[in-house]
Simulated scan of single mutants.
Amino acid sequence: MDHLKAQAYLLSKPEAVLDHPFGKDVMVFNIKNKMFATLALGKMGKGGGQEGNWWMNLKCDPDEADMLRDIFPSVIPGYHMNKRLWNTVILDGSVPEGEIERMIDNSFRLVVNNMSKKQQMSILPHL
């Protein structure tokens, strides 16, 4: 999955909004002002490391986060995030597109599930 497909999929989530609170180089995807993903070139907009590849931060269940890191070398602890709860997926083509979509869906659901019931009511019917 390339960054354009990732961006389109992230924005396809109900009520998803794109923001740039960390500068123009880091795309932040929110649902009701709660971040569920970031997307940036290189090390979250700073280049270096896996330069040329886009990096996406996604919220993740801690046990699943560890398993995904064991399975996919391009899934690493969340860059500049709580490493227990977030993974960074380096979009280098090594993770199947369906798996990335599943990780995005899980990140979105984790954030929605932590919202108040009132906030969830406008989102859950669309899932």
Rank of each mutant, 00 (worst) to 15 (best):
M1V: 15
L4W: 00
L4I: 14
K5N: 10
A6G: 11
A8Y: 05
Y9W: 05
L10N: 02
K13I: 14
E15A: 08
A16R: 06
D19P: 01
P21S: 15
D25K: 15
M27F: 12
V28D: 14
F29S: 06
N30S: 10
I31L: 06
N33V: 13
K34I: 08
M35K: 03
F36Q: 01
A37F: 06
T38W: 00
A40I: 13
A40Y: 08
A40M: 07
G42M: 03
M44I: 15
M44D: 04
M44T: 12
G49V: 12
E51T: 15
W54V: 07
M56R: 07
N57E: 01
L58A: 08
K59I: 04
E64F: 05
A65P: 00
L68N: 04
R69V: 07
D70Y: 02
I71Q: 06
I71V: 14
S74L: 02
V75C: 03
V75S: 01
Y79D: 03
H80T: 00
M81A: 06
M81Y: 07
M81S: 04
R84L: 11
L85G: 05
W86M: 10
W86F: 09
D92G: 10
G93R: 07
V95R: 07
P96F: 09
E97A: 15
I100W: 05
R102N: 00
I104N: 06
N106V: 05
S107M: 11
S107D: 10
F108S: 00
V111N: 13
V112E: 05
N113I: 08
N113G: 14
Q120G: 13
M121Y: 14
M121S: 15
M121F: 12
I123H: 09
I123N: 00
P125W: 10
P125L: 04
L127H: 07
